[in-house]
Design a protein around this nucleic acid. Structure first.
Lengths: 225, 225, 225, 225
DNA sequence: AATGAATGAGCATTCATTCAT
DNA sequence: AATGAATGAATGCTCATTCAT
C-alpha cells in the first residue's frame, strides 16, 4: 500500500486512541479480525464501485458484498466519504507499485514505455474494477484523485529523468519540461485505454499496431531536439 | 404525456405534440414559447452542472435556475437522464464547431495544434461550465460522451489527413494510424488541461513553455518516420 | 394563534419567495390545500407527541397520522426541529388565548385565580396532548419553551397589575415583585397539575379542597403586607 | 448473564452473581472491583446527562466517560433504561439527604424555607448535572421521577407538620392540606429555579429580593387562616 | 403548456444490545 | 468480569417523478 498518510483523513481510527490505565489490551486475534473486516469492506467497495460506480456504491451494497452487517461499516470508517477517500490510495496504490516494479530497471525510454504500458493494461485487465475507481475518483474523491495524479507524475518524471541521465533519449529536456512530458504521456496512455481498450466493464489489450504508433510517435518526438 | 415508448433515447420530442389526428396545429407563438422554455432549461442545466456537477443537478435546482416550474421540466424531457443525454451534444457541440472553425484553413500540423489548443482553452475560459459538462459526462451520460469522443476523433482525423495530404508532416502515417494519433493528441491535451489549467471551477491559460514542449514533442514525433 | 413571528424560524416558506415575471400565480384552491396539509401535519404532530412524546414523534408516525406521504412533511417544514419549534406556539398559543379570555374581566385576584385555574385544567382535559407538548418542549424546543414561559409570565403580570390597580389585593407589591409572584403562582399551579391531576395521558380535575387550599394560601399571602 | 426475568425493574443485581450452587464466592477484591465499576458508570452517566441530557447519554458516551469497555455496561445494568431508572435515586437521593440535613432543626417555617431554599440552590450550584438528571427524569425515568417527587413531598410534609406542631405558623392546616401546601412550595421553588437561576448548564443564586418576595408571600399566606 | 404540491423509494447514519474471546 | 467488534432495526432527509388544477 502506497502511503499510510493518505489514509488518515476522516477515517475512524482503528487503534484505541488512548491506552487507558487498567484496560485489557486487545487480543491479537481481535486485532486481526478487525483488520480483516476492514479489508473485506475495502475490497467489496472496489468491486461495487467497479460494477455500479461510486454513485451506486451504497453502504448497503458494499456491506452486503463484504458479508458484514450494515452497521459494521461505521466501525471502520467515519462515513461513506472516508471510504471513498481511501479507495483509490489503497487499490490504485497497489497498481502504481506494480507498474513501478515493472519498469524498475528499464534504461531506455522505449523500455519504460513498452513495459509500463503493457504492465498497466495487464493490471487493469486483472483488476477491472480499478478503472472506475480511478476514473470516477476525480468526482467522488477529488483530493485522493489529485494525490494519485501527483504520485503518477512524480514516479513518471523520476523514470524519465533516469532514462535521460543514463540513456540516449530525452537529452535536451530540462527537468521542468519533463513534468510536461509526463503529463503528455499519461494523458495519451489514458485515452488509448479509454478509447480503444474498454469493453463494458472489462479491459481488453491494446492492439499491437496502436501500441507501435504510440511508441513511434513518442520515441521519435522525445529523442532529441 | 405522449407514449414514452415511442421515443428514442428518453428524450421528449421537441416538435409540438400536435399533428396528431384532430388537433389544431400550435400557433407560432406557442411553438416559440415551447422551444424557448426548453432552451432555458438546457442553458440552466449547463450552469448548474458547471456549478454543482451532474450529481448536484437536481430538477429542482435546474428549474429554479431556469425560472420555470418544477413540473415544466417533464413537458420538455422524459426524465432527468434525457436532459443529461442532451447536454453535452448541445453545449459541447458548439465548442467543437468553434474549434473546427478556428483551425479551418490550417495547412501545417503546427498551425492545427497551436491554434486548436489555444482556441480550446480560450473557449473553456469563456464557458467554464463546459468543462464539467464534458468531464462528468463519461459518468452521467455515457452514450453522449462516447458520441462526443467519436466526433472529436472524426474531426481531428480529418484535419490530420488534410494536413498530411497538403503539408509536410505526417507523411508515412496511414489513415488507420491517424486514428491512434488523434487519440494521443486528444489525451495529451486533455491532461494538460486537467493538470495545469484548472483553478477551482475556472480555467486558466496554459503556460507558454508547456505549450511549446507539447508542440516540440508532437511536431518532432509526427514529422516523419 | 399567538404570534406569527414565532413561526418564522427554520420553517420552509410556503409562499413563493419571489413572484417571478411570467409565472402563473397559484390558484386559491392550491393555496388552501397547501395550508390545509400543513395544518393537518401540525395537528397530527400534537396528537403523536401527546401519545409518544417528542422522542417518539418520528416523521413517519406524524405523516401517517396526518394521512400524507412521508415526503410531504418537507414541503411544509425544513426539518423535524422546525416542526417542534412551531408546535408549542401553535398549540399552546391557543391555550393561552383561551385562558386570557377566561379571566378577561376579572377584577379580584380570587377571580383571576379561580377562573384561570379552572379554565386551565378544563382546556387540558379537552386537549390532553398539550400537556406533553408543553412539558417536553423544555427539552425538544427550548427556545419555544422559553418564549412560552415569557408569554405566560407577561400575561400573568398584566392581570396581577390590573387587579392590584383596580381591586383590593396586592397593593404594596411593586411591579418588579409581581414578576416573582407570577412565577410562584405559575410554579404552584404547574405542580398541582403534575402531582394531583395526571392520570396516564389524561388530565382529571383538581379536587375542590386542593383548589381551596391553593386559593387560601395565595389570597391570604398576597393580600397585603 | 443471570436470568433477567428474575430481576425487578430491569436492574442487574448488584450482588455478586455467585451464591448459586457450586460457585466459589467472589473474592472481596472482585466484589470491590465490581461495585467500583458500577459506581463509575453511574457517576459518568450523571456527568454525561448533565452535559448532553438523557437523549445524548448513549452507552458509548457513558462507558467512555467511565473509562470502561462498552460491553461492561451490560454486566452492571440490564439495559439503558435500568441505568436511567437508577440515576435519579442515586444522585438525587444524596441531594435530598443534604437538604433534609440543612433544615433538620428548623423550628419555624421561615427557617425551613430560607435554609432549605438556600441549601437547595447551593447544592445545585455545586452539582449542576443534577438539574438535568432531575428535570429530564420525568421523561426518561418516569417511575423514578414520581418516586422522587413523592420523597420530596413526604419529607416536606414532615417538616411542615413539625413546624406546625412546634411553632407558630401553619396552625389551622390539617394534615391533608399540608400535602397541597408542600406541592405549592415545591412548585414555586422549582419555577424560581427554572426561570431566574439558570444560566446555560450552570445554576446561579436567586436574587435576594426574589427570595424575600417568596418568603413574604408564603409566610404571610401560611401564617394562619 | 404551465404550475407546484404530493408521492414514496432509497440512502446515510446512529445506537442499544449481543457475544466470541 | 471485561473487552470491543458485530449486528440490524430505526430514523431523518432527498429527490425524481406524477398529477390535479
Amino acid at each position: 500500500m502506497a502511503d499510510a498518510s493518505l489514509r488518515r483523513d476522516g477515517e475512524t481510527s482503528t487503534e484505541p486512541s488512548a491506552r487507558r490505565a487498567g484496560r485489557r489490551p486487545p487480543s491479537p486475534r481481535q486485532v486481526a479480525k478487525n483488520a480483516e473486516t476492514r479489508r473485506r469492506i475495502v475490497e467489496a467497495a472496489g468491486i461495487v464501485v467497479g460494477r455500479h460506480g461510486y454513485a451506486g456504491a451504497s453502504i448497503a451494497r458494499i456491506t452486503a458484498e463484504a458479508g458484514v452487517a450494515h452497521g459494521a461499516f461505521y466501525l471502520h470508517f467515519a462515513n461513506q466519504q472516508a471510504l471513498f477517500d481511501v479507495l483509490l490510495p489503497e487499490l490504485g496504490g497497489a497498481m502504481l507499485d506494480s507498474l513501478t516494479a515493472a519498469i524498475r530497471d528499464s534504461r531506455s525510454l522505449e523500455d519504460i514505455e513498452r513495459r509500463g504500458l503493457q504492465a498497466n493494461f495487464a493490471y487493469l485487465a486483472d483488476h477491472p474494477e480499478i478503472y472506475r475507481v480511478m476514473n470516477e475518483a476525480e468526482l467522488y474523491a477529488p483530493a485522493a484523485f489529485q494525490q494519485h495524479l501527483k504520485e503518477i507524475q512524480t514516479r513518471y518524471v523520476r523514470s524519465l529523468r533516469r532514462s535521460r541521465d543514463h540513456g540516449g533519449d530525452l537529452h535536451g529536456f530540462a527537468d521542468a519540461e519533463l513534468e510536461t512530458v509526463a503529463a503528455l504521456l499519461t494523458g495519451a496512455r489514458s485515452y488509448l485505454l479509454m478509447m480503444f481498450c474498454r469493453d463494458g466493464n472489462a479491459i481488453r489489450p491494446l492492439e499491437p499496431e496502436k501500441l507501435q504508433t504510440y511508441l513511434d510517435v513518442f520515441l521519435n518526438g522525445l529523442r532529441r531536439r
